[in-house]
Design a protein around this nucleic acid. Structure first.
Length: 485
RNA sequence: GGUCCCUUCGUCUAGCGGUCAGGACGUCGCCCUCUCACGGCGAAAGCACGGGUUCGAUUCCCGUAGGGAUCACCA
C-alpha cells in the first residue's frame, strides 16, 4: 500500500469527514486541490475520514459525493475510506513504539483532566506533561494509549506555500496520542499514514489545520527514521471562509450544503465554482474564469493569506452572468422540474418548446434558476391567468376601451412577428394620443398578469396569436365585471 | 490565557519601493427603453494605527489595535 505514483507526480487529496453535507468551505478546499492537481498533471484523490463512527453517516458520504459530482470535481483512483485502514494505522503506531519513537501512556482520562485543571488554575498552557514518556513500569493489563515521543527542544519550520515560513518551538507541542486505549487510531495518526500511503505530495487544506501540521510533521519524521521513505509533503494552508458578518461560517451561519446552493438558491455549478475560486485567489483583474483557464492559471502562490467573507450578492451576480451565457436548451431542462412543480402538471412538448423560445428573453433578467423558473410561469398558465396587484392596478387605470381597440389592432397583424406587433402598438398609441408605454403596460398586465415582464412584443410572439388575443379578451371581460360590480 | 496566522474601497481582489492605488460585486446618478432586467457611461468609497529602514513607503522591519485559528483517547 505504498505510493505507487512516480515521486515527481503531484498528488493532492480532499479528505472530508462524513458528518454532514459538503459545505461551502469544503467545496473550495476540494476545488483548490483539484485545480492544483490538474494544473500539474497530477492526480486528485478523495479520502473519506470516517473514523469517528458515532458521527459518520452514509447519507453524509452520499451528500459529499453528490456535491463533488455536481461541481464536476472528479477524483482519481478509488476512494479511500479511512476506517477500513485502522489495522495499518495501528501497525505504524506499533512500529513507532518498538523503535522507541512512541511510548505507552497509562494516564486515565480523569487524571489528565485533573492535570489540565491545574494547568488552567496556574494559567499555564494546557498540554500533556509527558508523565509516562520515560517510564516503562506501566501497570500490568491496564489500558493505555500510545503517544508519540516528540522532540522537546529546538523548533520546526514549515515552508507553507500559502502562509509562508511558519516556525513553532517544539516545546509548544506535546506528545500526541496515536492509538487510543481501545486500539483505534486518532485522526493525527490516520491522516499522516494515509497521506503517506496514498502518495500525497501536497497537502492543501483549511488553515485551521496549520497547527496540526507541526505535530504531523514530527510523526512523519519519526517514521522516516524508522522506515525511511516517508517524505515530508508540501503544505498549503488556505484561509477559511467567513460569513458576511465576519464570523466563521458555521452550519447555523450561512454555511449551507452545496446541495442547498443548487436546489434552494438555484445556482449553476460553474457559477459557484467561479465564485469560490475568486474567494481568496486572484489572477489580475479576471473575474469570469472558465474551468480550463482556472486549471491553467491556478497557483498556490496567488492564494491570499487572509480570510474572506462570503458575499451572496456577488455570487448572485456571477450566477446571473453564467445563466445568460448558458444555452436555452440546458436552461429549459434545468428549470423544467421547478416549473412542473409550480404548475402542478407535467409539461407537454409544446410547453417545453415555448419555454425554450422564451428563454433568450427570460434569462437576461434571472439571477438564479428559481427566479428564472418563476418568471417563466406566466407563459404556461392556462386562461384566465392570475393577476398580481400591479397588473390589476394597470388594468383598472387603463383608458376606457383601450384594450378593446388594442385587441382589434393586434388582431389585424399579420405575420404575427415582433416588428409588426410593435408597429401596430405604436400606431394605436399615436391614434390614442398616448405614449407607447401607456398602451403597453395594460397589455402587459393582460398578457403576463404582472407589471413587469420580458419585452411585450416578444411575449406576444411567443404566446402566439390565439393565446394573446384570448388573454386580452379575458382582461376585457374582467374589467367589465369589475366596473359593473 | 499560551502558540500560530491575518489586516488595500461596505465585500472579493490587483499591487510585489516611485501608480492620479486598478478591476469586480454592491450603492448612487445618467443613457438605452413598452415595464423589469441586460447593456453603456459616470460618481462616491480603501492602503487599521504608531514607530522605524530608505532620497522615497500600500509595498520591507518592529510594535499597538482589531480579527481569525488552535490548544481532546473529535476530525
Amino acid at each position: 500500500m505504498s505510493a505507487s505514483a512516480p515521486s515527481s507526480a503531484v498528488v493532492t487529496r480532499f479528505a472530508p469527514s462524513p458528518t454532514g453535507f459538503l459545505h461551502i468551505g469544503g467545496a473550495r478546499t476540494a476545488l483548490f486541490n483539484y485545480l492544483f492537481a490538474r494544473h500539474h498533471g497530477g492526480s486528485f484523490r478523495l479520502r473519506i475520514e470516517d473514523t469517528d463512527r458515532a458521527r459518520s453517516t452514509d447519507a453524509a458520504i452520499a451528500a459529499i459525493l453528490d456535491g463533488m459530482g455536481w461541481l464536476g470535481l472528479d477524483h482519481d483512483d478509488e476512494i479511500v475510506y479511512q476506517f477500513s485502514r485502522a489495522a495499518r494505522h495501528a501497525e505504524v503506531a506499533h512500529a513507532l513504539l518498538e523503535a522507541g519513537h512512541a511510548y505507552r501512556c497509562y494516564a486515565t482520562a480523569e487524571e489528565l483532566e485533573a492535570m489540565r485543571a491545574q494547568q488552567r488554575a496556574e494559567k499555564r498552557p494546557l498540554r500533556y506533561d509527558g508523565r509516562w514518556r520515560d517510564r516503562s513500569d506501566g501497570p500490568e493489563g491496564a489500558p493505555f494509549v500510545i503517544r508519540l515521543k516528540a522532540p522537546q527542544t529546538g523548533e520546526v519550520t514549515i515552508d507553507d506555500k500559502v502562509q509562508g515560513p511558519v516556525t513553532v518551538a517544539n516545546a509548544e507541542l506535546d506528545d500526541m496520542v496515536l492509538l487510543r486505549s481501545d486500539g483505534t487510531p486518532t485522526y493525527m495518526l490516520a491522516v499522516v499514514v494515509d497521506d503517506h500511503d496514498m502518495g500525497v505530495t501536497h497537502v492543501i487544506r483549511g488553515d485551521d489545520h496549520l497547527n496540526n501540521a507541526f505535530r504531523q510533521l514530527a510523526l512523519i519524521r519519526a517514521m522516516n527514521e524508522v522506515e525511511g521513505e516517508w517524505p515530508e509533503p508540501i503544505y498549503a494552508h488556505i484561509p477559511l471562509i467567513h460569513g458576511a458578518d465576519g464570523a466563521k461560517l458555521s452550519k447555523r451561519h450561512g454555511a449551507l450544503g452545496v446541495d442547498a446552493y443548487r436546489d434552494q438558491l438555484g445556482l449553476l455549478p460553474e457559477a459557484l465554482e467561479n465564485y469560490l475560486l475568486r474567494l481568496g485567489w486572484g489572477h489580475g483583474d479576471d473575474e469570469v474564469i472558465s474551468r480550463a483557464q482556472a486549471i491553467e492559471w491556478f497557483s498556490l502562490e496567488a492564494v491570499g493569506r487572509s480570510p474572506s467573507r462570503f458575499d451572496m450578492k456577488k455570487l448572485e451576480s456571477v450566477n446571473g452572468h453564467y445563466i445568460r451565457a448558458t444555452g436555452d436548451a440546458r436552461l429549459t431542462t434545468l428549470i423544467q422540474p421547478k416549473v412542473e412543480s409550480a404548475l402542478a402538471r407535467p409539461l407537454a412538448p409544446q410547453d417545453i418548446e415555448l419555454l425554450q423560445r422564451s428563454m433568450a428573453e427570460l434569462k437576461k433578467r434571472a439571477p438564479d434558476l428559481n427566479s428564472l423558473a418563476a418568471s417563466a410561469l406566466f407563459y404556461l398558465r392556462t386562461r384566465p391567468i392570475p393577476m398580481d396587484e400591479a397588473a390589476l392596478r394597470l388594468l383598472a387605470s387603463a383608458p376606457s376601451g383601450l384594450l378593446v381597440r388594442a385587441r382589434a389592432a393586434l388582431a389585424a397583424v399579420s405575420p404575427w412577428v415582433v416588428p409588426d406587433l410593435e408597429a401596430a402598438a405604436r400606431e394605436l398609441a399615436t391614434a390614442e394620443q398616448l405614449k407607447l408605454g401607456a398602451v403597453a403596460q395594460p397589455l402587459r398586465a393582460a398578457l403576463t398578469g404582472a407589471g413587469q415582464s420580458p419585452g411585450l412584443f416578444e411575449v406576444m410572439e411567443a404566446l402566439g396569436r390565439d393565446e394573446t388575443l384570448g388573454r386580452i379578451d379575458d382582461a376585457i371581460a374582467q374589467t367589465h365585471e369589475t366596473t359593473s360590480a
